[in-house]
């Protein structure tokens, strides 16, 4: 009993919601996260909000990174957050949004519970550092 070795790992779901097919950003992030030693679950293109909720809940990820380039963040993100709340998964999941989000919307997203919004040109190290510092413990 005494001799258990713990092996925590930060688990991240990298998801693309909505109908835009631009997944380069998600791929780059997924790779960078992997190389930083995270376990990345990549769920592919065109995820529906409830699909992302299902994945985030079942995989028990510490971090949910949502990539949106379609401009539909104001409708899609709330749906995801509501879904997470429904399964008691909102409180201890770090929610990040990546993509093109106008400044006035950023505040609103953060109000909803998104921890940070990363726009184009954000250095990878910055995102990784943010995750390492803020990922909730399991």
């Amino acid at each position: 009993m005494s001799a258990e070795q713990e092996s925590q790992s930060i688990r991240c779901l990298v998801a693309k919601v909505g109908l835009d097919g631009h997944d380069r950003g998600a791929h780059v992030i997924a790779r960078a996260f992997r190389d930083a030693g995270f376990e990345v679950i990549y769920s592919g293109l065109h995820n529906a909000p409830d699909e992302i909720v299902q994945a985030a809940v079942q995989e028990d990820v510490n971090v949910l990174g949502i990539s949106i380039l379609s401009g539909a963040h104001n409708t899609l993100v709330p749906k995801i957050i509501d879904g997470l709340k429904e399964y008691d998964a909102f409180e201890d999941t770090l929610i990040l949004v990546g993509g093109v989000v106008p400044d006035e919307d950023k505040a609103e997203l953060k109000e909803m519970g998104v921890a940070e919004v990363f726009g184009p040109g954000t250095p990878l190290e910055e995102t990784i550092e943010f995750v390492q510092e803020n990922a909730p413990q399991r």
Binding site: R34, V40, I41, Y42, G44, D50
Partner: peptide, 18 residues
């Protein structure tokens, strides 16, 4: 690094939302 990309979920298209 201990890191991994776990991509099997992408194929679970028939059971989305279930």
């Amino acid at each position: 690094t201990g890191g991994a990309v776990l991509g099997d979920r992408i194929r679970m298209a028939s059971n989305v939302g279930d």
